[in-house]
Amino acid sequence: MNQTTAVGRDSLREAIIKNMITVALCFSIVYVNGTLVHIFNRHQIFNTNPRYILYVHLVINDIIMVIMFILLQVLSYIMFTINVSLCIVLLMTAVLASQNNPLTVVLMSVECYVAVCFPLHHSRVCTVRRTYVVIALTWLVNSLSILPDLFLTLGTENPDFFHSRRFCLRANVFRGNLEYKRRLSNILFFVILWLILFYTYFNIWFAAQTASANAKKARNTVLLHGFQLLLGMLNFLFNVVIEAFAVIFPRNVPYIRFVVSILIQLVPRIVNPIIYAIRDKALKKYLKKYLLIAANDADVHPIKTQKRDNFATGVIKNVILAALCISINYINCTLLHTFRKHQV
């Protein structure tokens, strides 16, 4: 995951507008994804099904990525530079979450493949316990992509470096000559994922020739997983896209970084819940219930007579509140910074 702002400072007006847009999107994404996680925890039909467990793992990673995105952006505007140790923690968390997503998408395709091509063995192969073990292995495998950067930095940098302040970018913190390694590992990573995805798709496609409704539905699901994987790949092309547009529009790099960040890092987080929640009837049913129905249902405690806001009202209220808080904090921090910098 990459930072959303350029190293140059925006004006106060631009900073407020950009943060309001970002916070509005982030709050909406976290609200919807948080509702999906709540539905998963509340209903046994979801938390005992390996398919939904993998899906919720995808949603949780989206939430982590969005939180890291907004933290890095807001901190970069308020303080510009942050402690290197804190930056390392934030970057490592963001990188792990961003790499977990494409791997989880492929695992969901493999689960579909087993369900369609080996239906008699599905309940034995895809158990809840094995699903959680695979998720743990996913985190372990993906940590191998960021740990070399960490160990190299720990071994080569002076201890004072970790107490210094830097603009929080991966290139500013992990300064070892590992860019070629990163690109090569990312290419290899996605080649393997695409090979697995194509293998599962074509096997399901051949199974669908038998006119099985479940097989045809699974084939369409794997196609959507391919689209999700394509969106996940965009995150790894962030710097390439920025550099390409910076050559064409050298004077608009801050705006380019902001727009590309929204399109590459936030828009896919909106698409992921929509793809599954709308297509899955059971999930769609519960999602509509939790997002759109007021809290005066039969299972609400009698003492709690106050009605809940609907989804649109709740999002609008939270966005306004968050925008006001960020604006006030940004102005106050600017005043404090001015007070400390100028003797007058």
Results as ranks from 00 to 15, higher is better:
residue 293 I to S: 09
residue 294 A to L: 04
residue 200 T to H: 02
residue 220 N to F: 11
residue 210 T to L: 06
residue 287 L to D: 05
residue 343 Q to L: 10
residue 159 P to M: 00
residue 260 V to G: 04
residue 90 L to E: 08
residue 255 Y to A: 13
residue 58 L to M: 14
residue 61 N to M: 04
residue 273 P to G: 05
residue 169 L to R: 13
residue 155 G to F: 07
residue 5 T to Q: 09
residue 229 L to R: 03
residue 108 M to Y: 00
residue 9 R to M: 07
residue 242 I to T: 08
residue 309 D to F: 09
residue 159 P to K: 00
residue 268 P to G: 11
residue 286 Y to G: 03
residue 342 H to V: 01
residue 162 F to N: 00
residue 297 D to N: 15
residue 318 N to Q: 13
residue 81 T to I: 01
residue 276 Y to W: 12
residue 325 C to P: 00
residue 5 T to W: 01
residue 83 N to D: 13
residue 64 I to D: 05
residue 327 S to M: 13
residue 242 I to N: 07
residue 75 L to G: 05
residue 147 L to D: 00
residue 253 V to N: 11
residue 35 T to H: 11
residue 139 W to T: 14
residue 218 A to L: 08
residue 92 M to H: 02
residue 281 K to W: 00
residue 6 A to H: 15
residue 121 H to A: 07
residue 29 I to H: 03
residue 219 R to P: 02
residue 141 V to F: 14
residue 143 S to Y: 01
residue 108 M to C: 15
residue 292 L to D: 15
residue 216 K to H: 03
residue 223 L to N: 10
residue 132 Y to M: 05
residue 330 Y to E: 08
residue 305 T to W: 08
residue 205 W to P: 00
residue 36 L to F: 06
residue 69 F to G: 05
residue 274 I to G: 04
residue 37 V to S: 12
residue 71 L to N: 09
residue 289 K to C: 07
residue 294 A to N: 07
residue 250 P to M: 08
residue 193 L to R: 02
residue 68 M to P: 01
residue 209 Q to H: 14
residue 328 I to C: 07
residue 168 C to G: 03
residue 222 V to K: 03
residue 107 L to T: 04
residue 243 E to W: 10
residue 317 K to I: 08
residue 148 P to L: 11
residue 122 H to G: 04
residue 149 D to W: 05
residue 14 E to Q: 10
residue 201 Y to E: 11
residue 20 M to L: 07
residue 38 H to I: 00
residue 330 Y to I: 08
residue 145 S to T: 15
residue 123 S to H: 15
residue 175 R to E: 12
residue 53 I to E: 02
residue 4 T to S: 13
residue 233 M to V: 01
residue 86 L to Y: 05
residue 182 R to I: 04
residue 61 N to P: 01
residue 84 V to Q: 03
residue 263 L to W: 02
residue 293 I to D: 15
residue 330 Y to M: 11
residue 234 L to I: 09
residue 44 Q to P: 07
residue 259 V to G: 05
residue 83 N to H: 03
residue 232 G to E: 10
residue 1 M to E: 00
residue 150 L to I: 13
residue 261 S to E: 06
residue 165 R to A: 06
residue 264 I to H: 03
residue 196 I to W: 14
residue 301 H to V: 14
residue 167 F to C: 01
residue 244 A to V: 13
residue 188 L to T: 07
residue 60 I to V: 15
residue 160 D to G: 00
residue 257 R to C: 15
residue 184 L to I: 06
residue 45 I to R: 07
residue 223 L to E: 08
residue 342 H to Y: 11
residue 246 A to T: 11
residue 86 L to F: 13
residue 204 I to S: 07
residue 69 F to A: 04
residue 154 L to Q: 01
residue 15 A to Q: 08
residue 251 R to S: 15
residue 8 G to E: 15
residue 104 T to L: 15
residue 97 A to M: 10
residue 336 L to I: 15
residue 234 L to K: 09
residue 279 R to C: 11
residue 113 Y to F: 15
residue 207 A to Q: 15
residue 150 L to Q: 08
residue 290 Y to Q: 02
residue 107 L to H: 09
residue 44 Q to N: 11
residue 119 P to R: 01
residue 106 V to P: 00
residue 218 A to N: 14
residue 201 Y to M: 06
residue 220 N to D: 12
residue 71 L to Y: 07
residue 215 A to G: 07
residue 65 M to W: 08
residue 95 V to D: 11
residue 135 I to F: 12
residue 55 Y to S: 06
residue 219 R to M: 10
residue 323 A to N: 01
residue 9 R to W: 02
residue 335 L to Y: 08
residue 14 E to F: 08
residue 50 P to K: 05
residue 106 V to M: 09
residue 334 T to D: 06
residue 71 L to F: 12
residue 266 L to H: 04
residue 219 R to T: 04
